[in-house]
Amino acid sequence: MEQDIELLLDNCISEMRNGKSIDKCLAKYSQYAGQLRPLLQLVQQLETLPKPEPSLEAISAALIEIGRERAIQQGGTAAFSKISNAALNLKKRSSIFNKIRNPKLAWVFSIVFLFLVVLFSAATISANSVPGDILYPLKLATEKVKFLLTFNSEKKAELRLTFSDKRLQEMIAVFQQSGKLDTTLLKEMLDEAKLALEENKTPIDTASIFAAKLSHVNAYQKDVLEKIRPQVNPSSRQIVDEAINMCDMRGRWMREMMNENDEVYPEGSDSMHSPQQMPRSKQKSNRKQWGPGCDWDR
C-alpha cells in the first residue's frame, strides 16, 4: 500500500508537470486525495523556489584556475590559454550582462527601449495623418528632425520637394474628406517648393538635374490644382487661381533656367557673367530666387 501511494504521488507530480491541476490529478485517485493533496500543494511551493545562477565571475575564475592547473600538469601553456580564453569570453559577457541584470539599469533600458519603439511606431503611423489628426504634429516634428539631421544641401533640397509633395497630398485628402480647400496647406506646398530652390546648393553641373525635378513637381502641382479648381468653393477659387498662376510662372522660369544652362538668371542678376566667373557667394544668391511673379505677394 505504501509503495502504491509513492507511485501515485510520483504519477501526480508528472501529470502536474504536464499542466494538470491538483484536482484533476486527484480525481483518479479519490481514496488517496486526503493524503496526496497536501504533498502536491507542497510540490507546487517547492517548484516556486528561486533557481539560483552562479555569477559569471565565479565560473570564469574556476575556469582560469582549472586551466592553470592543467598547464602545470602538462608543462605547457596551450591548455591554459584555451581554457583561459573561455573564461575571458565569459568575463566579457559578464560585464555586459551584469549591468543589464542590475534591476535599476534593466528598468532604464526597458523604458528607453519602450519609448523608442512607441516613438518609432507613432512616427510611422503618423505618416498618413492630415491636419486635425492627433498624430499630425508628430508628423511635422518628424519632418523637422529629419531635415535637421540632413547635412547635405542637395538632400535637404530633395527633402523640401518631398515635404511640398506631402502638403499637396494632405491638401487633397482634406479636400476629399471635407470638400474644403485648406489654403494653409496650399501655401505651405508652394513655400516648400520655393525653399527647395533656396536650399539647393548643388554644383553647377548637376543643378540642371535638380531644376528638372523641381520643374516636374511644379507641373504636377499645377495639374492637380487645375483639376480641383472647379470643385472648390468660389470664395477660395481666387487663391487657387493665384497658385496656378504662380506655378505657371515658376514653370516658365525653370524652363528658361534649364534652356540657358545656368547662364540665364532671374531679373536683377548679373547676367553678363558666367557662373564660373562669378564669386561663389553670388552664384548661390542668384540660385536662391525664383523669377518675378513666382512667389506670393500677399
Binding site: L63, I66, R70, K82, I83
Partner: peptide, 14 residues
C-alpha cells in the same frame, strides 16, 4: 581536449 573541458566546466557549473 582543453576546449571540451572548458565547455563541460561552464555547463556543469550552474
Amino acid at each position: 581536449d582543453s576546449k571540451a573541458i572548458g565547455i563541460i566546466c561552464s555547463h556543469l557549473y550552474s
